[in-house]
């Protein structure tokens, strides 16, 4: 009962039991099973090996597997907890759990800190902030003079760097986000509450894709 895909899942590298993942995340067992449907779709879109490769994340985000982007790289790196170049099912569910509407705000703040700490020094540094600003301007085809960019970066950095030591630490980041809650808006995906409707894993899939 309820084991119709157990044979297939046993063969999937990195597969973890939904009951285990549900116990560690805000998801129910049914939601984890629904996420497995999404995971299968994403992890077979370029290389059908049951693992999400960077190209597959890029394809899902941009509809283009070759389009690279600083932020997509950082998202991939944070999801790839084992740092082995692929996202396994357990990593996918645990990472998406942070984006659940019921996930602790602390977890969302921590995730964004790690996202913006590009060089993983334990601090968000001014150069990293400028690099990210330049990346979003490039991505958006927005043109701002270097003077304007410098002014924006300086102002934001001085607002966040309460200790004035030239770097933003996790404590300062938490304080800054509490004053600017919109900074973690992207960290909540309402879709995750309806994931069983979008991917009804309880309906036996025919595995036949429309093209």
């Amino acid at each position: 009962m309820g084991c119709y895909h157990s044979k297939r899942t046993k063969e999937t590298p990195g597969y973890e039991e939904p009951t285990v993942l549900a116990a560690e995340t805000p998801f129910t067992v049914s939601e984890v099973e629904a996420l497995y449907e999404l995971f299968k779709k994403l992890s077979s879109s370029v290389i059908d090996d049951g693992l999400i490769h960077k190209e597959e994340l890029q394809l899902a985000l941009f509809r283009n597997k070759n389009r690279r982007n600083l932020f997509a790289d950082r998202i991939f790196d944070l999801f790839d907890v084992k740092r082995n170049g692929v996202i396994e099912f357990g990593e996918f569910v645990r990472s998406l759990g942070v984006f659940h509407p019921n996930a602790p705000v602390e977890d969302k703040i921590h995730f964004t800190f790690r996202l913006y700490d590009l060089r993983q020094t334990g601090f968000i540094e001014r150069e990293e902030l400028k690099e990210m600003v330049l990346a979003i301007l490039h991505e958006s085809d927005l043109l701002l003079s270097d003077d304007v960019v410098e002014t924006i970066v300086d102002k934001t950095f001085s607002d966040a760097d309460l200790k004035g030591d030239g770097k933003i630490d996790p404590e300062e980041w938490k304080e800054f986000v509490s004053k600017n809650p919109s900074l973690i808006k992207n960290m909540t995906l309402p879709y995750l509450k309806d994931i069983t409707l979008a991917f009804p894993s309880f309906v036996l899939s025919t595995e036949v894709e429309d093209s």
Partner: peptide, 28 residues
């Protein structure tokens, strides 16, 4: 005052990146 009174927060600007909106993962 010569200073710009309402500069956009750099992190808000960064948050506008489409890559940081993972809702694309759920699109059919």
């Amino acid at each position: 005052s010569p200073k710009s009174p309402n500069l956009i927060n750099a992190f808000q600007l960064i948050g506008m990146s489409s890559c940081l909106d993972l809702s694309g993962l759920f699109e059919k």
